[in-house]
């Protein structure tokens, strides 16, 4: 029976090459990694940015309006007031270190 004889490997390779040329795929018989999958994959950044809904805040609105319009940001005023009160009671943020030796981080317990 002629049909039972397996075709020669070279013939099979030729078939694969022809198939690749017809369907416009790359002929890669040894399965070498070409890195094509990094170029083929879609960019995921744009959809990642969409996950959290955009929030509108008074500060953002004021920045958008560029001085033509301003809304009073009650929370921000309260926060600034609280910071002032804390400073008066000596509870403000510590001074920034000028040199590395002044850093409070170094004095911290290990």
């Amino acid at each position: 029976m002629a049909a039972a004889i397996a075709p020669a490997p070279s013939r099979l390779a030729a078939l694969t090459r022809l198939r690749c040329s017809i369907f416009q795929t790359s002929y890669n018989p040894t399965s070498v990694r070409t890195g094509a999958k990094y170029l083929r994959a879609r960019l995921r950044g744009p959809s990642m940015l969409k996950y959290y809904p955009t929030e509108l805040s008074v500060a953002k609105f004021n920045a958008f309006a560029q001085g033509e319009w301003t809304m009073i940001d009650a929370d921000e005023i309260q926060r600034e007031k609280d910071v002032e009160d804390k400073k008066k009671r000596g509870k403000g943020a510590p001074k920034k270190a000028k040199r590395k030796e002044d850093s409070r981080r170094l004095k911290r317990k290990k």
Partner: peptide
């Protein structure tokens, strides 16, 4: 992180392509 990924994705992909390309 999301903003960073979006900003650098294209360049990272290009480097990934070169680094993973055995040819």
């Amino acid at each position: 992180a999301r903003a960073g990924v979006n900003a650098h994705e294209l360049v990272r992909r290009a480097y990934l392509y070169v680094a993973r390309n055995q040819t």
